[in-house]
């Protein structure tokens, strides 16, 4: 069945069976493989995307949910060459190693900061409850989210000024 939605700012229509998972729709039909699949029990968060701005696990959603809504994936975050402040912060704080968990971490982090613009370390750690990273030991991810939060705040202030 045809499903129309906005994907990274562009209107798209996908014709897939209604049993298709959003993660499969993105990876297999839209050729957007930045959204990863790391488990089969909705535990790892490698697949997190933003649906109408809220973090969701795309491995747990069926494609028809998207109808009329707006989906942002890791590929849609940067504006041209300019990285989103959270992407930039993961880079400057060495918040990634193998990169597999990274798209989900970055999307989760943006959602976390949208809800809590100045999170404490404990709040960040709590907020990452649904995301597993096997490489970094989380310390630099936490640092990156703190730095990203500050940068996001600065860029909204700059935009408002």
């Amino acid at each position: 069945m045809p499903i129309s939605f906005t994907l990274n700012g562009r209107s798209r229509t996908a014709d897939v069976p209604s049993s298709t998972l959003v993660s499969d729709l993105l990876r297999d039909h839209m050729n957007l493989t930045g959204t990863h699949v790391g488990c089969d029990t909705s535990q790892c968060g490698a697949c997190v995307v933003l649906l109408d701005g809220e973090a969701v696990k795309s491995c747990t959603l069926l494609a028809p949910v998207l109808a009329g809504r707006s989906l942002t994936t890791i590929e849609g975050l940067a504006k041209g060459e300019k990285l989103h402040p959270m992407q930039e912060a993961f880079h400057t704080q060495h918040g990634l190693q193998c990169g597999f968990c990274t798209p989900g971490m970055v999307m989760t982090a943006i959602d976390l900061v949208n809800h809590n613009p100045v999170p404490t370390e404990a709040e960040i750690r709590e907020g990452l409850e649904g995301n597993i990273c096997r490489c970094t030991g989380y310390q630099n991810i936490v640092k990156a989210i703190q730095a990203g939060a500050a940068a996001m705040a600065a860029s909204t202030t700059a935009a408002a000024a």
Binding site: G34, T35, T73, I74, E75, L77, A78, L96, G99, T102
Partner: peptide
């Protein structure tokens, strides 16, 4: 990796 362009 940050832009979803890794190739696994």
């Amino acid at each position: 990796f940050l832009t979803g362009r890794g190739q696994y």
